[in-house]
């Protein structure tokens, strides 16, 4: 029953929470840059306004792929908050991302295509760590199911104590998944040059609003994964999760965009070193405890 409420809560509240986080993001970013910044509700105003605008489109397909993108993001969130298989959550998340990429490809515009290609590179860089996280949870809790992990965490078996390396690795690729600087290769919230609007170049009005809403769902889902590491005392978990998001904003504002080569290399290195070593340690401990 709780899982049903969580699912409903996710579907209804995630855009709200995501929007507020996005608003806070803009305020904090503004303060870091010595500006005052917009009100928290600005993100909602923007989306409402986008819906009012003309629906400019290059062809009749791409808006449709975007709808699929949104649907699958929500679906993967439902799987996660419904306590389902963590691997399937990542796979559904990937499907959603593929639809975003297809939408961009289908426009057949050069900027969009570059963005699509770079989004694929971002997936190539981030995907291993996401799956490795799932495997890490499995090695500690013996199950991929979020509900099992969550219950065990509430029962006092705190994931972060067993998976510190995996957590750091996940935090590293989280920046890629949020498309924040230095990894805002495929698209960025800052419209300072054509190339970097990439993926979203051809999307305007309602289509862009869809992307924005999907992004809110995405944010909540990813933060949910972070929360899972600290799911012992809810309030502490939430504070740490928000702190992680604050760190992402800080990184966003203090780092210049890097080339995709460096992104790919560093993300894979982080995956192998932080995630891989963590898993190796778990494996060795299991061997020792089995032997003893």
């Amino acid at each position: 029953m709780t899982s049903l409420w969580l699912i409903i809560g996710y579907v209804v509240l995630a855009p709200l929470i995501g929007g507020i986080i996005s608003g806070l993001d803009r305020i904090i970013t503004a303060r870091m840059q010595g500006r005052y910044g917009p009100p928290v509700r600005q993100a909602f105003f923007d989306v409402f306004k986008l819906f009012e605008k003309q629906n400019l489109t290059v062809n009749r397909f791409h808006g449709y792929y975007l709808v699929c993108f949104l649907i699958f993001i929500i679906f993967s969130g439902i799987l996660f908050f419904g306590g389902s298989d963590l691997l399937m959550v990542v796979f559904a998340f990937t499907v959603a991302d593929i639809f975003l990429v297809l939408a961009a490809y289908s426009t057949n515009s050069p900027y969009c295509s570059i963005g699509a290609e770079r989004e694929l590179l971002q997936m190539l860089a981030a995907e291993p760590m996401l799956l490795l996280t799932a495997v890490g949870f499995y090695m500690v809790f013996g199950s991929f199911h979020v509900s099992v992990i969550y219950r065990a965490a509430l029962g006092g078996k705190l994931p972060i104590l067993y998976l510190p390396g995996v957590f750091l690795g996940l935090t590293y690729v989280l920046t890629i998944k949020f498309r924040k600087s230095p990894f805002d290769l495929s698209t960025s919230h800052h419209a300072h040059q054509e190339l970097i609007k990439g993926l979203t170049t051809e999307f305007a009005g309602p289509s862009l609003a869809l992307i924005e809403i999907a992004h809110w769902y995405e944010t909540v889902l990813l933060l949910g994964m972070v929360y899972l590491f600290f799911a012992f005392v809810p309030i502490i978990g939430v504070i740490i999760t928000l702190f992680i998001y604050f760190v992402e904003i800080l990184i966003d504002n203090t780092n210049a965009r890097i080339k995709w080569q460096l992104m790919l290399e560093s993300a894979w290195l982080a995956t192998l070193v932080l995630g891989g070593l963590n898993l190796l340690a778990l494996y060795l401990f299991a061997m020792i405890s089995k032997g003893g």
Partner: peptide, 20 residues
Amino acid sequence: FGGSMMLFFWAKWMGQLVAV
């Protein structure tokens, strides 16, 4: 890692097909 690389080359192929 192998799976992620497969994802990359299949997805970009799909992308080429659907460009209008």
